[in-house]
Design a protein around this nucleic acid. Structure first.
Lengths: 173, 173
DNA sequence: GGGATATTGTTTCGTATGAAACCAAAGTCA
DNA sequence: TGACTTTGGTTTCATACGAAACAATATCCC
């Protein structure tokens, strides 16, 4: 750690030594740990009560609040890659939660939508997901929760802008 | 979505319907997406330039700023489960970056520390990691970065408190 | 029309993950 | 001392992941 740096030095050295490296203060690490913890809690809840994985839940989540979508549209809205979406949809079809409606005008893709059973499960999950979210983020008041969302939003926009390849997302949900 | 709720209803219903469910506004989802994006960027950088995975980097990170540690101590400090740590350490040993020093007084575990090569890699990675962190979080000023860290800190403490089982952490680093 | 190219999803294949089983070395205690 | 139990790490095994290859259309453009 250098003694205090002058304004000039700061211009030259944009990332001044901030003392010894501490993993627990490293933002990417912190973000990962927190996200994973929350992810787990949700994964467990969805699995236990509905037999769903997080990718499956994400697909249902978007289909629950939109008209029928193609797989590609789901990819866009869930930040998952197409392999994951493909598998999640296949699983949901097998459970009769999602229906596939072929499109004569383009037989490569089909429109996907919640079936009656899927709709019921969706209606049941949403309040649960909201409650769990509220419970897990209880330490933050509504204000800080919004603040966190805003910060993540800015960060995300930045990251999405930086032409990074695959845009998939881990697990939570 | 209910018509506006009265104060009384709010007391009764702690999680008032906030309109239709929107995945992209769901905090667990947002956290996961952002964490994963950052994770990827780091994973790629570490792999390309140092041939390291994130779990490996984490192990080196703690060993780089502490005396020799047992695997169990590393588990504590990296929020990774013992299987992951075991494998990361094995890989680092194979690369001669980490050395294992047996302990006669307890031959079940050994003390682990960076070897000379590991030390050199560590010294090289740290500035890079800091620079990448700075770049990725550039949209947030230092103030907001600290704010985000603080919010994650509170959230984490809360989550860690809630006796959730496994405490492993995803990937970033 | 009809070959070249692009788009949409699915499948393959190698790697990462983690729960549970396992092994070896301590520790307990009768 | 000699069962049991506990602790520290490793290995196994079944699953999740995603990059790359693939198959089936669709679209271009001559």
């Amino acid at each position: 750690m250098k003694p205090k740096s002058t304004a000039e030095e700061r211009l030259i050295d944009p990332a001044p030594e901030a003392g010894p490296f501490r993993l627990e203060a490293f933002l990417p690490y912190r973000l990962s740990v927190t996200a994973k913890r929350i992810s787990r809690a949700f994964a467990r809840a969805y699995a236990e009560r509905f037999g769903l994985t997080i990718p499956e839940w994400r697909v249902m989540a978007v289909l629950g609040t939109s008209g029928p979508l193609t797989a590609a549209a789901i990819v866009e809205r869930t930040a998952m890659d197409k392999v994951k979406v493909s598998r999640a949809v296949a699983a949901l079809e097998a459970k009769a939660l999602v229906l596939r409606r072929p499109r004569p005008e383009d037989r490569r893709s089909a429109l996907l939508e919640l079936g009656p059973a899927g709709r019921r499960v969706f209606e049941e999950i949403v309040p649960l997901a909201r409650a769990l979210e509220a419970e897990l983020t209880a330490v933050l008041g509504p204000g800080d929760r919004a603040l966190l969302a805003a910060l993540l939003g800015r960060l995300d926009a930045h990251l999405a802008g930086r032409g990074d390849p695959a845009l998939d997302a881990g697990d939570p949900g």
